[in-house]
Amino acid sequence: MQALTDNALMLKVKSGDMDKMGLLYERHKKRLFGFFYHMNGNASLSEDLVQNVFVRILKYKHTFTGQGSFSAWMFRTARNVNYDHFRKHSKECRPTEISTLEYRLQDADAGSVMDYDDTVSLVNRALQRLSPEKREVLILSKYKAMKYSEIGSVLGCSEGAAKVKAHRAIKDLRTIFLQMENS
């Protein structure tokens, strides 16, 4: 129902009713921000990328046909925005990509903190060590509550292939956990 409504709203935006864009933004801003934040661990950069997604949605609104779900279309755009950003800033991105998170996590490590915080930092760091392709499939599945049929549509592959990717990503993540715990 939500997807249908999203599609209807986006079709209105397409026909020139720009006010509906605000509604879509309110509905999806946190999901998008979370996606970018988990991808790059940088809150400020993630906010900029959310903005870029909506700029791009407005620019390419004529390409929205209403055939698939708006969420899938939006995350496809988000994925492209993320990819373009890191391609442009490939030299500088590696340190900044995880800078906010890493610094904060390092600070947290420095102070003697609770086990809970340790676990959170461990998960965060492990996630950041995953390759972007594997990270994104886990983020879309775990944090964005997307169905695998939609994830397949975002990633440009079949539902089954998306599940296999997710399975391998979890296995890799576990390996990274174990490495970090042992180090």
Binding site: K29, K30, E47, V50, Q51, V120, N124, L173, F177
Partner: peptide, 25 residues
């Protein structure tokens, strides 16, 4: 491992993001 991932929290985006969006809109 899947359940461990639940422990990650996501911060809230700032008000500045909303302001920038509505200005752009």
């Amino acid at each position: 491992t899947w359940n461990q991932m639940d422990q990650i929290t996501t911060p809230e985006p700032s008000k500045g993001m909303d302001n920038r969006f509505y200005k752009m809109l």
